[in-house]
Design a protein around this nucleic acid. Sequence first.
DNA 1: TTCTTATTTGGCTATTTAACCAAATGACCG
DNA 2: CGGTCATTTGGTTAAATAGCCAAATAAGAA
Lengths: 124, 124
Amino acid sequence: MDEGKKALYHARARVLKALAHPTRLWMVEKLAQGEHCVCELLETVDADFSTVSKHLSVLKQAGIVDVQKRGKQMFYRLKVPCVLEFMGCIEAVLAGGAQDRPDAPGMTTPGKACRRCGQGEKEL
Amino acid sequence: MDEGKKALYHARARVLKALAHPTRLWMVEKLAQGEHCVCELLETVDADFSTVSKHLSVLKQAGIVDVQKRGKQMFYRLKVPCVLEFMGCIEAVLAGGAQDRPDAPGMTTPGKACRRCGQGEKEL
DNA sequence: TTCTTATTTGGCTATTTAACCAAATGACCG
DNA sequence: CGGTCATTTGGTTAAATAGCCAAATAAGAA
């Protein structure tokens, strides 16, 4: 795996990691309804002010939310609404993989013995 | 936020966390092409055998992949292919939020002053 | 300017995660 | 059975993450 590819997967993982927290997931859904200031989110979350702020900062750094200052408040909004579409699939995972597309692909290398595992294709 | 809701978001976050690692993301895409044994995945990954095995175990526990033992090999396959659909959106995030759906919703609570921040709606 | 409100930053500690190595298990082969 | 292959488990350590508290900003309001 070359460096560029590695960097790509790291970047993708970073985005997912930003989403991979219950509170942040909740806030993302909240922000999907429209922008909210930190204190509004705080009301619904049961955590410290600074904790909420840090979660929002994680989402912002990942590029998932945007922030705009108005007066003394910071208004956060969902920048990339398509992340909401993840939820359906996540529910499918939680439901045990009940898939709408049950045509699972078979083996690509059907009878591969894997003896001295590493002679077939390399870096595919 | 009641306990049930909290548990739901925790569960969702757990699934995302399982995906939120460059190596695991890579392996998921690899398994999307068809099932593979651990040693096949190992070839493409540049990590210890045990490391790869543990990553796979994380994916399995999350319910994202399935495993089947045949002979002395363990064959992993993608159980829930819809996770692949995340990638498009992740790219959009990385591209800076260039969205196909640019109709961002506005404020839900337009002029809310948020003074003594916590008198409006509670637990919504 | 001083006070208050809204939010971020900077520690600090506890928990989780990742990676490697070494040892254990499980299945086939001779 | 004893060996070897494929994989998992356990142990250890380093690094990342999450949470809270307290202090620092930033913007009005008095």
